[in-house]
Amino acid sequence: MKPFTYLKPHDIEAAIPAGTPPGTKYLGGGTNLVDLMREGIEQPDHLVDITGLHLDGIEELPDGSLRIGAAVRNSTLAAHPKVRKGYRVLSEALLSGASGQLRNMATVGGNLLQRTRCPYFYSDAAACNKRQPGSGCDALDGFNRSCAVLGVSDSCIAAHPSDMCVALSALDAVVHVQGPGGTREIPLTELHRLPGDTPNIENTLEAGELVTAVVLPPPLSARSTYRKVRDRASYAFALASVAAALEIEDDKVTRIRLALGGVGTKPWRAYEAERLLLGGPADEQAYRRAAEAELAAATVRAGNAFKVTLAEATIVAVLRDLSKAGAGS
């Protein structure tokens, strides 16, 4: 690992100037960044640890929304009574990720900004436009079973790995950031960028911008759930995952939130499917039509073509389960 300096400031005012110069990275739990530094993929000169900034609170705001500090640990968030009660999809998504030990370390901010698990991104002997802009993409004709089918480009098909972000996307979460230019709010759905020609630029944050919190709108009345499909029962990234909230009245879909993981280059809010479902019949046929419409935009490679069928099947299964479980209650 390349040598680096380490700073642990105690207030945000000190953290931001320290975190702004080129070659500097914020450090959350380190479960992703330190791994990548060991592999030589990330080579920062300076780390600014954000776990001393008192960003670890979870509080309900007067309007009923929930403000989650950026340094809250994944396990803490998943177990929080307000989250388990009002945002079940988020709790389930978090618990489906990584392992107990990793969740104890991982922070909300770090989870938002974790990097892809495409094997070629990790292989220093391979071409990867994300790791080394302009070098090419060995995943296109290589092992791309884990890669994305939605939002892909000719230069990158790496899937976004986060489970938490899929749930946050479905929940219309808003990311609060603070940087040298002040504070701003970014809808979760606009935090991550599609790869296009610059897959190395993964999000819309500016230099030095620190994620301070994620705010969830007041709980939905709809039932919600997260389903993750993967190669082993635990401790594996999603091949496809679905975050959904569904409310049904008189056999009609009156409220729907749907987001997909494992299939997109960013956490994938399934707007097209939502549009088709809303106000329509709450039956399996409609679910399937909506799923197929969402996946119609897929661009597949030899190894990941199955993800289209898998994502469709998972969407249908999740909506079926939610409607059976008495949606609307």
Partner: peptide, 24 residues
Amino acid sequence: LIDHRSGRIINPSLSEYHIPVHAD
């Protein structure tokens, strides 16, 4: 996973080479 072009093993880690976990 051995890349068919380079001969490089591209999942040389316990995170990507999936041995069964307890839940399996």
